[in-house]
Amino acid sequence: MKVSRFLLAIVAVALGVSCASTRPATHSATTAFGKLRLIGEQTIPHNMPFMGTVTGGLSGIDYDASRQQYYMICDDRSELAPARFYTAKLYFSGQSFDSVRFTGMTTLLQQNGNPYPGAKVNPSLTPDPEALRYNAQKGCLVWSSEGERIVNTKDTILTNPGVYEISTDGRYLDSFALPSQLRMQATENGPRRNGAFEGLGFTPDYRHTFVSLEEPRYEDGPRADVGDTTALTRLIKYDNKTLQPVAQYAYRLEPVAYPAIPANAFKVNGISDILVLSDHQLLSIERSFSSGVKDCTIKVFLVDLHGATDISHVNSLKTATGVKTVTKSLLFDFASLGKYIDNIEGVTFGPVLPNGHKSLVFVADNNFSVAEESQFFVFELIP
């Protein structure tokens, strides 16, 4: 989801909200998954030019160990430049995070081989890129689009969300089958606008892909709100050979962290990315934002699918009975860092550190707004 579409940054600046955090500063957290220790942080310059584009809108990140490089998808909807992804090198050790260097830019191509058009050219074909992963087994990339849903007296534009296989040079290869419940509709059914396919990841054996819906479908109930724990969204499990969905699971979202200012202004909490650990465990990032509060509230959860109900044939979680949601436990709250945290939308394991521990890399989408930052955070995962 692009918070800039709702003029959130303008609201925050107009209200003069401070970036300072008054939360207590600690730099690690421990769960059964392990302990996260912050190594360092980097921020790239606003609208940094690169290969004829401006960088920003970094909504997904993945690490390719064979090439020792990162893939990062940009959520520019072919407005500033054609829809694209970047490659980059991140330079860090177990003690410090020194720099980020962009190394390449690749245009995402439609099935006909052409770049995707912007909304002013053909809004029905304009993508909304959000997540990107490298499939080392197939040697290809997989990316997701949230689609589009505009329904008003002037226009009705319905573009389904999608998940696509592409080559590393951006060429279309194939697409994942879309469950019927996730088709965009002009009525209040199916996915909400900007609330669809925000995160994805593969099981370590590349047998399955999981895709996360950022927010509840209309039939599944209301969006997250302050003090409300009833919002339910979905995780979709795919077979990577057939590209067909094989299961769906209900995921209970946290409440929105803070009331909006003013009270009727925009606020949101949803899943901004996932990182799959096994066939039944994954990490989820929940990102909460409220107008008038500059920081985003970013929480990372360890999610377990054991015992969760397969809801593939459940059309409405709002009315269904006997549905068991996935379980989750808090792994890390970015508020514990005691610093300004922006719109984190991507996570990946990076290279193994010299001491043998895994690294974990997060990236923030700045929405191409001068009021926001393209942040990178690197952590050590201590078993």
Rank of each mutant, 00 (worst) to 15 (best):
E215K: 13
S144M: 10
V163K: 03
T55A: 11
F50G: 01
P127T: 09
T209G: 10
H280K: 15
S359R: 02
N194D: 13
L232P: 08
S180A: 15
F289V: 12
V293T: 11
V151R: 12
K328C: 11
G195A: 04
I157K: 14
P117Y: 06
P383E: 13
T209W: 14
G16R: 07
E286A: 01
G40S: 06
D75M: 04
E219F: 08
F6P: 00
A260M: 03
F202I: 07
S167Y: 04
I261N: 13
F202E: 08
T31D: 14
Y218W: 15
A29L: 01
L200M: 12
D304P: 10
A186Y: 05
A25C: 11
S167H: 06
T43G: 01
A83M: 07
R171W: 00
L158F: 12
L38Y: 08
R84T: 05
K328N: 04
A131T: 03
F301R: 11
K318Q: 14
E214L: 07
I285T: 03
D76N: 14
C140E: 12
L141F: 04
A9Y: 07
Y218S: 10
W143R: 08
N135S: 08
Q110V: 00
Y86T: 03
Q248T: 02
L330C: 00
A260K: 04
S96W: 01
V378P: 02
K154G: 02
R101V: 06
A20W: 09
F334D: 02
D220K: 11
A196V: 02
I157E: 08
R171P: 00
T203F: 07
E215V: 06
V226D: 05
N135K: 12
Y251S: 06
I236P: 10
G227T: 02
G56Q: 06
D342V: 00
E254N: 09
T309C: 04
T106A: 07
I39D: 06
D205N: 15
N122S: 10
N152Q: 04
L15G: 14
E215M: 15
F289A: 11
G60Y: 05
V300C: 10
Y63P: 05
T229A: 13
A224R: 06
G94K: 12
I285N: 06
D225W: 10
L283E: 02
C140S: 14
E41C: 02
S99C: 00
